[in-house]
Design a protein around this nucleic acid. Structure first.
Length: 487
RNA sequence: CGGGGUGUAGCGUAGUCCGGUUAUCGCGCCACGUUUGGGACGUGGAGGCCGCAGGUUCGAAUCCUGCCACCCCGACCA
């Protein structure tokens, strides 16, 4: 483990990589553009998964699993969809290897009749399946989610943020009516926003994507956007209203209550391991990762301090008692009694890994009946008597969670600007943050602004706004939209 | 795919311009001992196809050619 994490003022990407590597979250793998998620990183992902999964189940969804491979023909049934994904697909063409003089080679005789696409997303294979599941309005709605890996052959990759293979959840729902599908799209967007704000302590902006940023094959894409500490926006989750595009492409019809055949209405939605990137870039500091207590695999770590075997036995007994008490109060706690590392080493390790609270206990504390508590977010140390420990910890966890959200939210507010002048717009975009500005609603203007400033329209807010004049073209605009440079 | 950079022990590196003993240093690792309230110390030890392939040379980590990989900046990214 490196001793110092590079200051983000020097190089933000280097800082980001240092956090990922030093906190032992992930590393680059032998496979181009892919990553190995290490146990600690995965334990955070598992926390994230389990909490989000609960929210899906609470809103009536169930999990299923569909194949990794998609026959090429499925993939090309929806025209926009294929256009959007064709360039970044991994394709399986053969099913066998053989020995040759130059080593193992692909057996040309084992060529697949139809190539298989490694799923970049599962709409096509799922809608091919839904065709078999749906005949009547009684079969609807179908509210299914799957936790899976997908592959997108991206040109340039970065740990967690954009890897060739990534883990995600993708929900795919089928509904009787347009209204119901729209409701679902919105419901999920709110689930995502709640999850980020309440569990990950990441404030987000909700809105819809412009036509050019929309999911390939969707009629409308809703999104949540977060702001990272370097002033760049990160798309943290999307929820798509697919209309009848996929049900028409895959011919999924149902008989409605009136006895008439109709195409099904659809949504799809997802968040990925990219959320780990959002987590890192929202809360981490130059000391390492900072985890919000609701998400942390360990909320509390206990470090014993002792000299010699005699002291260890006394301290250990005390620590075990506290460990059990905390566990019984449903606090996720780790007791690190490894003798192979010194306390100072452990202190640093858990700071780098972002554990919200550290308790250290030695003979001094036992004698004085006071326990030292350290909080990761502010680096403050405090003392607490044994009998008050549980309450103090519970209170502190809540406080840290709130504090992280508040801090991130203040950052978001301080870096969101309302701008009416294009020179000012360029300046603000350059320095980072969200810029709320008027836009005439055309893709042409959007593209031109991107060319001039590298800023894209992150989202169009749902709430009605005041009319005005487009920042570039001067044409009339319905309301302000969020611009930013994005990951 | 363009521009730039880097490949030397598990990690980080010196040496490369200007070829010449046994390839440098730190961290980590192993053993023993002393340690343990903020990244311990001492002594001893192990670990190298110097990215790969060719070439020049008495001699190559160092020079030449080709290739590969990774990183950064662009382009790309529902």
């Amino acid at each position: 483990m490196a001793k110092n994490i590079t200051k983000k003022t020097i190089n933000y990407s280097q800082w980001y990589n240092d956090i990922v590597l030093n906190a032992d979250l992930a590393e680059t793998s032998a496979v181009r553009g892919c990553m190995v998620i290490k146990p600690y990183g995965f334990s955070i992902w598992e926390r994230l998964q389990s909490e989000l999964d609960k929210m899906f189940k609470n809103t009536g969804h169930m999990n299923a699993y569909f194949p990794l491979f998609i026959p090429k023909s499925f993939f090309s049934k929806e025209a926009n969809h294929v256009d959007g994904f064709a360039k970044e697909c991994a394709v399986v063409t053969h099913y066998r290897l053989k020995n040759s003089d130059s080593g193992i080679i692909v057996d040309e005789e084992a060529k697949l009749e139809e190539e298989l696409i490694v799923r970049p997303t599962s709409e096509t294979i799922i809608w091919d399946t839904y065709k078999k599941w749906i005949q009547s309005y009684r079969d609807l709605p179908i509210l299914v989610n799957q936790w899976a890996n997908v592959v997108r052959w991206e040109m340039r990759t970065r740990l967690f943020l954009r890897t060739a293979e990534f883990l995600w959840q993708e929900g795919h729902t089928a509904h009787e009516t347009k209204e119901e599908a729209l409701e679902e799209t919105e419901l999920i967007l709110n689930v995502y926003a709640d999850f980020l704000e309440k569990f990950m302590a990441i404030p987000v902006i909700k809105g819809r994507k412009t036509e050019s940023e929309r999911f390939a094959g969707a009629l409308d894409t809703y999104c949540i956007e977060a702001l990272m500490q370097d002033g760049k926006a990160l798309q943290a989750g999307t929820s798509h209203f697919l209309g009848q595009n996929f049900s028409k492409a895959f011919d999924v019809k149902f008989t409605n209550k009136a006895g008439k055949l109709e195409h099904v209405w659809a949504t799809s939605w997802g968040v990925s391991t990219r959320l780990m990137g959002a987590l890192i870039m929202t809360h981490s500091d130059d000391q390492g990762l900072v985890l919000p207590p609701n998400l942390a695999p360990f909320q509390v770590v206990i470090v014993p301090i002792y000299k010699g075997q005699g002291e260890f036995e006394i301290v250990d007994k005390f620590c075990c008692k506290i460990f059990k008490n905390l566990q019984n109060s449903e606090i996720r706690v780790k007791y690190d009694k490894r003798d192979s590392f010194k306390p100072g080493w452990k202190f640093n390790e858990y700071e780098v890994k972002g554990v919200p609270i550290r308790i250290s206990i030695g003979m001094r504390d036992i004698k004085e009946n006071s326990i030292e508590i350290f909080r990761r977010d502010t680096f403050e140390k405090s003392k607490c008597v044994d009998s008050q420990l549980i309450n103090t910890i519970l209170q502190l966890l809540k406080e840290i969670q709130d504090n992280l959200y508040k801090k991130a939210n203040i950052f978001l507010e301080n870096n969101t600007y309302i701008v009416d002048d294009f020179d000012d717009f360029k300046k603000k975009i350059k320095s980072g943050g969200f810029v709320l500005a008027h836009w005439d609603g055309t893709s042409k203007t959007e593209k031109e602004i991107k060319k001039l400033t590298k800023a894209t329209i992150r989202c169009i807010p749902f709430s009605p706004g005041q009319k005005g004049k487009c920042i570039l073209s001067g044409k009339s605009s319905e309301k302000r939209v969020f611009f930013a440079k994005a990951y």
